[in-house]
Design a protein around this nucleic acid. Structure first.
Lengths: 151, 151
DNA sequence: CAAAGCCTTGAAGTCGGCTTGAGAGTATGC
DNA sequence: GCATACTCTCAAGCCGACTTCAAGGCTTTG
């Protein structure tokens, strides 16, 4: 099949397929007499794999690593599983961060809703978001909370 | 205070402060006779606000919007609250996606762990990640699951 | 045999949020 | 009066995963 059909089946653009080839994620395709790339079912497989691994959150580089190891006949299971475990931890951390942000946001929204709209007229008193005045922000740790003061 | 001190207090780099100025997020600072930027406490306030809003997940553009409205004396509360509510919804969607991905990953990891390591020697049989062969991927919806077949 | 539609290439652009570098001027302490 | 630290400007680079563009060549259909 040619690139258009392959792309359709994988639900990506032809440009993306060429891009993948350019970064080595897809092998260099064989060509027809006219110079068109010609693909087989295994190429679709590979693209679907890439998509799955992307869904799992792996970067194209990581996916390439797994694919390369596989091509080399190396034992991918161990490395792949480790990659996945790492990524699982990353996701957990990300969720924790998001939930903290969510809680802070929720507080702000609640505050905003409980405010007297009349107060909003005063440009110096929008109280929805603000930073702690005079709060000595301690070194380096990412802040996960928001304060409420005047903006 | 000069830019270095401001940056230290806000825990960002001087380059970032200048960058913020360049994109209009910080006002053009006053200058000393020697051409150095001179800042007051309100500038630190503003940077801290930016940081808080960033922590809440707002983009610099969104933060700029809020800041501009505030400068115009517009009622920021309504808009800000709406912005926040939108962002809250975004975060929820993001968490849902992450949790789905997490579940899929977890499955893969479990599968990887239950595999007989002996099977990993065979390059054609690493079963950790793979896409559904012959699965007719329905149009457009993001896939949130992973399948397990040969890679 | 021509129009339409698919394909080719390489380079450049996009997004967001910065960082880095070069080369030069300013301020401060001894 | 000089070393050192700080600051200036402007431009370019970086990350990841693409998308878009321009200017053509190949293939299929009528």
């Amino acid at each position: 099949m040619r690139i258009g059909q392959l792309a359709d089946r994988a639900e990506i653009s032809t440009a993306t397929v060429r891009y993948y080839e350019s970064i080595g994620l897809m092998p260099e395709a064989e060509r027809t007499a006219g110079g068109y790339r010609e693909y087989g079912p295994e190429d679709l497989e590979r693209l679907l794999f890439v998509r799955d691994a992307q869904t799992a959150g792996l970067s194209l580089t990581q996916i390439g690593d797994v694919l390369t190891m596989k091509a080399n006949g190396e034992s991918t299971c161990g490395h792949t599983a480790e990659l996945l475990r790492h990524h699982l931890a990353d996701i957990d951390a990300q969720v924790v961060r998001l939930m903290a942000t969510r809680a802070a946001l929720q507080q702000l929204v609640s505050r905003a809703e409980s405010l007297d709209p009349a107060d909003c007229g005063d440009p110096n008193r929008c109280q929805v978001i603000a930073s702690h005045a005079g709060d000595a922000h301690p070194h380096h740790g990412r802040r996960e909370s928001l304060a409420v003061t005047n903006v």
